[in-house]
Design a protein around this nucleic acid. Sequence first.
DNA 1: CTGAAAGCGCTAACAA
DNA 2: TTGTTAGCGCTTTCAG
Lengths: 342, 342
Amino acid sequence: MRLRDTPPNTTIRDVAKHAKVSIATVSRVLNESSGVREGTREKVWATIEELNFTPNPIARQLSIGRTLTIGIIQPYITLPSYIERLRGVQHSLASSEYDLVIFNVDNPGQKDAYFKDLSRKMRVDGMLIVSLPPTNEQADNFADTRIPTVLIDSENPKLCRIVADDYEGGRIATRHLVELGHRKIAFLSDFLDTPFHPAMRLRYLGFQEVLAQHQIPLNPAYVIEGSRGRINARTMAKKLLTLDDPPTAIFASSDTQALGVLDVAQEMNVKVPERLSVLGYDNIPDAVYNNLSTIDQNLYDSGVKGAQMLLDLLGGLIEPPCKQQVSLNLLRRKTTGPAPIF
Amino acid sequence: MRLRDTPPNTTIRDVAKHAKVSIATVSRVLNESSGVREGTREKVWATIEELNFTPNPIARQLSIGRTLTIGIIQPYITLPSYIERLRGVQHSLASSEYDLVIFNVDNPGQKDAYFKDLSRKMRVDGMLIVSLPPTNEQADNFADTRIPTVLIDSENPKLCRIVADDYEGGRIATRHLVELGHRKIAFLSDFLDTPFHPAMRLRYLGFQEVLAQHQIPLNPAYVIEGSRGRINARTMAKKLLTLDDPPTAIFASSDTQALGVLDVAQEMNVKVPERLSVLGYDNIPDAVYNNLSTIDQNLYDSGVKGAQMLLDLLGGLIEPPCKQQVSLNLLRRKTTGPAPIF
DNA sequence: CTGAAAGCGCTAACAA
DNA sequence: TTGTTAGCGCTTTCAG
């Protein structure tokens, strides 16, 4: 029956035998249920220690019908913005009875695989899904399945979710730049259409809208998209800054990319913000250090809120669908300033 | 018995009833064991599909006595070098029957907590422990416990482990710099003594040894330690480069830090490698991009090897203690050059 | 306050 | 080839 030939672990039965009580009693003291005489409790604890016994969580899970863990599916665990959110989640979960397990998704295929047999295979009681919008079909599945799910940073009317208004974020950012007098504003971002980040496209739309409102024509050469990361951002920034008529402001759709822009500006000796304004998005810790102006999307807070919502769902306090917004703030620091005068 | 008031999931028993076979037969087709007539198999599959049945992994785990997952305990999941290693691990595990769950440790307390009730609470069949040297007592515990463990990037004679020779790494690096004619060589690193990284101290010892061999006096002002990360490295580098008698070469104990040094050099207009040689450690992807000379410690490979060793352990192919080394290579790129002549 | 016993959903002897 | 059945280690009802 068991494949391993190792000696069996000590079980609750061993403890019971040693302590000369029933296994029910041992279980009671283990779970700190009331109704065990003080003397008995002590005796049992003593043998537990003596035998160095740890209850088998798998058996417990099978018995109570819950796994006491919640899973988080997240792309790019390596990016600072995701880490920030993860911290928030961990904060909310720390005081709960749930453990957190992380599933990293590196490619769309992996995402689908995870989504498919979510609950059972994952052995989790609840799921947090970050920045990974489900298709309609997948959303239906989530809604049907018995396992509570909350989306963070993606939108679906049938599910519970924490969202930020990326469209508005794009507007706030662009408005800031326009109000500083900029007219040559570039938009530098991840690929606008990926299965992962509809957010980018929304920010772009907000960007467009504000430009239009101010009758500023959109120069196609000022819109540049590419792979994530600081290094790729450098390449893109270089293209922008070596244009015959370079922009006076760059709105980068993540801080990481904005930092890449800053690298290039320094390298090319373009003074920031005198000759070039750079505006990021996220407010990651590095942004503070570099005095980067940015849109704070309260990443940590979104993690806290998402985990709390899941906990509420698990506790039956709320029912899907439900929705919460995280706020967006412009943080004006030292990398944005008035447009240069010609 | 079950706390949830949700309708019970469909079980193997339901399938058996529907298909008019015994649960044993269902189990057999589920596990693709031989000895089921083709017709029966098909019938069972059909009802499985029809009922949309997924076996409960918890029950399976309890029954077979294994969890089919392996855990990895790792500090700093956010640093590129750790990601690199993780990729290697995932590569090895992809073709195995095991899932990987990641436990991140942010502080020593967490580490101890994880180490304490490792196996049971974690519900894993095997553990990979990265860069987290156990105390002797903890090591004894690991050795006693029935759960196979391999250390990656830390050393303990009682356990299975993948190690790199950091002492030698320090020597290789320093030798390179000395051979280029440098005499004023600085050593910039993480805190030399942390519970996480004895490696740093070893590299430092290697550094000292080579200097001594060449009768180069060690200037205390050239040794600087601080918190991890590119940003902190900048602060340290600035201190070094504003010394009255600044070094002509800096050996940074990680690429991330070396990049911080490069930032400062550029900012201060110190030409690299003409006026300053910078040597890193790790060979992370960014190092390639920045043409950073570095010590390649084959991070990815260490992940591959570690996971493979654990698999072998799990399969009973090897027994602890065991040990494997990953190789170290000097990668001379563009940030190290001959010492400037005065 | 304590114990006996019936599950939780699955696997694997063993027997047929 | 298939079915019966005894676990895996725990929780929890129900009786005492």
